[in-house]
Amino acid sequence: MPASREDLFAFLSASGISVSTRDHPAVFTVAESTAIHEEIAGGHTKNLFLKDKKGSIFLVVALHDAEIDLKTIHQKIGAQGRVSFGKPDLLMEVLGVEPGSVTPFALFNDREEQRVTAVFDAAMMEVDPLNFHPLENTATTTVTRDGLIAFARACGHEPLIVAVSGN
């Protein structure tokens, strides 16, 4: 059973990772979240749930306006051949979230099986703080970039920090 927002917050607190969260109406796309960007300071993001030809799964996290070339990203992230978007049922199975709620905080639901490779765009990691959904798209949680890395590691994931956006 996927973790709840409360489970996530308890884990963050127990891990000594400070966050702040703001509730808002549900947003399903980066375009829908534009108004929230003005209300919440920090880098706003997008998350791509991808899989390669061999079934390896990647969660690519970048700034909301980053341009990512899906035809060449496999070369940057170590995928076997071109990648495609993972299907909603695989997303729920592996990360425990619905489309529109994809977030690096969903690595919390992949602590045991370790099926996902977390990829954080290098340009995003230059911004502090960063904003993500807390497993649901009705809120935004702000965390420092160091807190994000500490969270991923506490979930057993060593994130790849790679320049996936731009040229």
Score class of each variant (00 low, 15 high):
residue 5 R to N: 11
residue 84 S to D: 11
residue 80 Q to R: 13
residue 156 G to I: 05
residue 18 S to G: 10
residue 127 V to R: 13
residue 137 N to A: 07
residue 59 L to W: 11
residue 59 L to E: 08
residue 98 E to S: 12
residue 94 V to P: 04
residue 73 I to K: 11
residue 144 T to L: 10
residue 155 C to K: 07
residue 36 I to V: 09
residue 83 V to N: 06
residue 156 G to A: 03
residue 87 K to I: 01
residue 62 A to Q: 06
residue 162 V to G: 03
residue 123 A to H: 06
residue 124 M to P: 00
residue 77 I to A: 01
residue 3 A to T: 10
residue 17 I to N: 09
residue 123 A to C: 10
residue 22 R to I: 13
residue 25 P to M: 13
residue 119 V to W: 14
residue 7 D to T: 07
residue 95 L to N: 02
residue 93 E to D: 15
residue 104 P to D: 08
residue 163 A to P: 07
residue 96 G to Q: 04
residue 82 R to E: 12
residue 5 R to F: 01
residue 150 A to T: 10
residue 101 S to L: 03
residue 6 E to L: 08
residue 42 G to A: 10
residue 125 M to Y: 05
residue 22 R to G: 08
residue 33 S to D: 00
residue 139 A to H: 07
residue 28 F to Y: 08
residue 155 C to G: 06
residue 97 V to N: 03
residue 28 F to S: 13
residue 104 P to M: 09
residue 56 S to A: 15
residue 100 G to T: 04
residue 110 D to K: 05
residue 67 E to D: 09
residue 148 L to K: 12
residue 29 T to D: 00
residue 8 L to K: 06
residue 42 G to R: 02
residue 55 G to D: 11
residue 75 Q to I: 13
residue 73 I to F: 04
residue 134 P to M: 06
residue 14 A to T: 05
residue 27 V to G: 01
residue 25 P to W: 01
residue 162 V to D: 04
residue 86 G to P: 00
residue 151 F to W: 06
residue 4 S to C: 13
residue 94 V to R: 11
residue 50 L to Q: 04
residue 154 A to I: 08
residue 41 A to F: 07
residue 11 F to A: 11
residue 147 G to W: 03
residue 68 I to C: 09
residue 72 T to V: 15
residue 13 S to D: 12
residue 164 V to I: 12
residue 152 A to C: 15
residue 85 F to L: 07
residue 92 M to W: 14
residue 70 L to E: 14
residue 94 V to K: 13
residue 167 N to K: 14
residue 1 M to I: 11
residue 84 S to H: 12
residue 19 V to D: 03
residue 165 S to D: 00
residue 54 K to Y: 02
residue 60 V to P: 01
residue 32 E to K: 00
residue 50 L to G: 03
residue 147 G to M: 06
residue 69 D to S: 15
residue 74 H to F: 14
residue 15 S to L: 02
residue 9 F to D: 10
residue 106 A to L: 02
residue 25 P to T: 06
residue 90 L to R: 04
residue 146 D to K: 13
residue 53 K to N: 10
residue 75 Q to S: 13
residue 27 V to P: 00
residue 131 N to V: 07
residue 11 F to H: 15
residue 154 A to S: 15
residue 97 V to Q: 05
residue 144 T to R: 07
residue 110 D to H: 08
residue 34 T to M: 09
residue 38 E to L: 04
